[in-house]
Design a protein around this nucleic acid. Sequence first.
RNA 1: GCGGCUAUAGUUUAGUGGUAAAACUCCGGUUUGUGGAGCCGGUAUCGAGAGUUCGAUUCUCUCUAGCCGCCCCA
Length: 424
Amino acid sequence: MSDKHLGTDSYKGVRDFYPEDMAVQRYIFDTWSITAESFGYERYDASILEPSELYKAKGAENEEMVNEQTYTFIDRGEREVTLRPEMTPTVARMVAGKRRELSFPIRWYSIPNLFRYERPQRGRLREHYQLNCDIFGADHYTADVETIALAYQLLIDFGAKPEMFEIRVNNRLEMRRCYEEAGVSDSETQNRITRLNDRFHKISAEQYKVALNEIVANEVITERIYTVVSGSIPEDTNEVVEGVRTLGIKNVIIDRSIARGFNYYTGTIFEIFDVSGENKRSMLGGGRYDNLTAMFSDEPVMGIGFGMGDVTMRDFLETHNLLPEGLSSTGPEVMVIPFDAECNLPAQKLASELRRATTARIATDISTKKIGKKIGDASERNVRFVIVVGENELTSQSFTIKDLRSGEETPGALGIIEGVINTR
RNA sequence: GCGGCUAUAGUUUAGUGGUAAAACUCCGGUUUGUGGAGCCGGUAUCGAGAGUUCGAUUCUCUCUAGCCGCCCCA
C-alpha cells in the first residue's frame, strides 16, 4: 500500500462494526438477552484480561494451548496476562469467590468477547462474541435438561424451525463406561478414542475403524466401540434426552461421537448443528463440569452451561434467511433543517425543545449544503420528518413539519409539531 | 504449523505484452426556501518487490494480505 498512510483494514481476524453491522449485532445480542432472561438468567460480565494461570492451571496440555492459541503478554509489572479465550474459567472464578454468599442454584449469563490466536476461517475469527449461559450448584439431571431447552429456545426465538437444526447429546461418564465395558480401562487410551470420535463424521467408517484399531490394537474392542459410536443401538438414550423430549423438544438425539474437546467436562455434553449442511461447524455447544471450581477451593461447585458464538449465529441466520428486514437503525427520525448556517443555532435550540417533549431521535442538519440537498439527504437516510427553520419560521414561531413518507405537511406552533412527532 | 485459491476506482466486476472499462456509491455543479430523477464533471502509480522483454497491469519468481480447507477447537 501507500508509504504515507496506514491501511484502513481492521486487524487480522477481528471485525469492525459499521452501523449496519451493529444493527445486526444488536439484534442478536438483544434476542439472546431476552431469551436468557425469560428463563431467569442474570447477566454478569468481567474484564477481558485474566492472569494466564487461570488457563494453564490444569497441566501441560493447557499450557500448550495458552502459549500457542491465545493472546498472552507480560504487563509492566511482569505479570503474565491473557486476553480471555473463553468465559467458563472466569465465571467459575467469580462463582468460587462468592460461593458462601450465593444461594444456589444460580443461573447466570453473559455476552463476552473472546480472543484466540489462530488462522481465521469461515465461522471462526480471532475475536468473537459468545453468549454464555450457566447454572451453578444444581446436580440434578433436570439442570441439564433445562440448559438444553434454553439452547433450543434461543434458536426458536430467532425464528428457526426445529427441522433446521439438531441437538446432539452425549455423556462423558457413559462413554467411559462404554470404553470400560469394551475392555479399555486406561484413561489416556480413552482420551485418544474420544479425540478420534470427534472426527467420526468427517471420515469414512472404514477410516474410523482403522484409526480406532490403531489405538486399541484389538478388533473385538474396535467393533464394540464402533457399534456404540456409530449409533447402531437404536434404543440408546439417557434421562437427559428423555427429559428434553418430555418438554416437547423433538429434534434431539444421542450422538456418541460428540466429544467437546477433552478438557473439563464430566457428564452431559451436547452440540447443536445446522442440518442444512452449509455450516458444518457446530453452532452451539456445552456440557456439565462438576469440578471446575475445584481449582479455587476445596468446596467445588458443579456447573452446566453452554456457549454460542455470534459469528456462527449470524451464518446460521443468513443461511436460513432469518434476519429481519430493516433492522432498526439508531439514526435520526426527525431532522431539523436550518435554511442557512445563520439558522443553525436556532434550529439546534428548536431540536432540544422537541427532545424535551418527545422520545424521537432528533438531529439538526449542520451541513452547508443547499436546502434541497439537505432534504434529499434526510430522505436517503430514512429520516421520517423534516422541519425547515428559516427566518420566516423564527419570526412567526410557526413551523412546518413534513412527513417524508407520505409527503404530508403540517404547519403550526411548537406544540402542533410535537404532536405530529408523538403520534408517529 | 501445512495446503489450495484470489489480489484492477470507495464497492462489485470487465479487459489487454504497448500505462485500463463499466455499473453502483460518494463528492461537486446543473437550480440562491423544500426530497429520491436527469445531465455534466471528479476520484486507479491495475497489492508490494524483483526478473524476462524494446515495452509488464498482463508472463515468471519472491513477499504481503484476504478467502477457503487441514490441524486444533475453549
